[in-house]
Design a protein around this nucleic acid. Structure first.
Lengths: 213, 213
DNA sequence: AAAATATTGTCAATGATTTGGCAATATATG
DNA sequence: CATATATTGCCAAATCATTGACAATATTTT
């Protein structure tokens, strides 16, 4: 159905949702693409074009109903589902993600954490216990876990990803600094923090290059 | 000089660097764009085109020298500099970033952490003390801080960004879930984790949509 | 209820990015 | 050292993404 929507469009949807959420909070009932374009600093044409990939949510002469558009974009993004997730790697990053309450509000439910460090095993994050890695395969196989979050160093990540896939995981949110090689039916979203920092570094240097006399 | 290189190209450079680093570690001396394209699962044409934005680093009939190309991309990304950075928000995410040793290897030196929570003030991350927010303006103004990392909730982020800018910061690595409005001379790199999670959610739903009978 | 105004959805034009192809030129081979 | 082979740098073509324009159609005003 909505097979070939480009990732460029998908990447913009969460930002639309964020702005619409703020408008909802301010009890704004309707908004036109041109008003929204000013707020978001994009072209009105892009907003209309993006939304049109999924069907017409607006009305001529009126604009878009904020609540309706918000809920439609939520649906498109799959946020009406609940997702059970586990975190592998209970270091600071894992704990940060596990403790982030807004994820739960969106329907992402933390079901378990895993680590190989004996000092961490048995500790808790928001009532969820950190388990030893040995229990991971069984946990993934029997529980209905939708997403595995990988917050371990790159050295172990490839092997852990294999274990996850072998036990039936269908989605990985990967913070390890390595590209995972998984079957096509497994969705992977990478967050490569050091890549992001390097881009910042580039932009700093490049700005400085272009602005010295 | 290298003024108008597209961000699409810049975004790929850290990944090239990562693969070249792995080749260096394996003592591979030279590589052709087509060999690298197989490893990285991109087209050889894209690799050559990307590198050509910055000048010719290869040699016909030979390919690219791994060490040389690695160091040239490092230079392009500004990684031969040292950057002093501070972290605002000493929660788990701030601690995770502050404790990440690889950043230091790349020349990113943690100079201070700040938080408004009295329980955290005085605690340490890798020998760096968490200071109260009151000390932030003076610290930014007098120290030579190149990058501020924002790991605080969105509510406070806009104000803190203003304080940072007013005191002379030139670059912000923003993890707060809000768009910062800063002067054009301030470089901002956003890491919106929940946007990333929503993209994963979309890809899960969309895969399921397209594969049910 | 007619006229004026607002605003979408969509098409066409433009702009940007990616890919394919190949001349030029290096290395490797016999 | 001449010939075969490899591979870049670059150009042109193809693809993809963004923007601008406007008919169609709703809302708002008088």
């Amino acid at each position: 159905m909505d097979k070939d929507i480009s990732q460029a469009v998908i990447s913009r949807l969460p930002r639309y949702l964020r702005y619409l959420g703020e408008l909802k909070d301010k009890n704004v009932e309707r908004i036109s693409s041109s008003e929204l374009s000013v707020l978001m600093k994009v072209t009105a044409s892009q907003i209309r074009q993006d939304l049109n990939n999924f069907g017409g949510f607006g009305q001529q002469g009126y604009g878009y109903n904020v609540d309706y558009l918000y809920s439609e974009i939520s649906k498109i993004l799959g946020l009406e589902h609940q997702y059970n997730f586990i975190i592998i790697g209970a270091g600071n990053l894992g704990k940060a993600l596990g403790g982030y309450l807004n994820f739960e509000k969106r329907g992402f439910i933390l079901k378990g954490m895993f680590d190989k460090n004996p000092d961490l095993i048995g500790t808790q994050v928001r009532g969820v216990k950190v388990m030893p890695m040995e229990e991971l395969p069984e946990f993934v196989r029997s529980g209905n876990i939708d997403i595995a979050v990988l917050t371990i160093p790159k050295e172990g990540a490839v092997l852990v990803a294999k274990i996850l896939v072998d036990n039936g995981i269908r989605a990985i949110w990967n913070f390890a600094h390595v590209d995972l090689d998984v079957p096509e039916y497994v969705q992977v979203e990478n967050v490569h923090l050091s890549d992001s920092l390097m881009k910042l570094s580039y932009n700093i240097s490049s700005y400085n290059e272009n602005h010295k006399e």
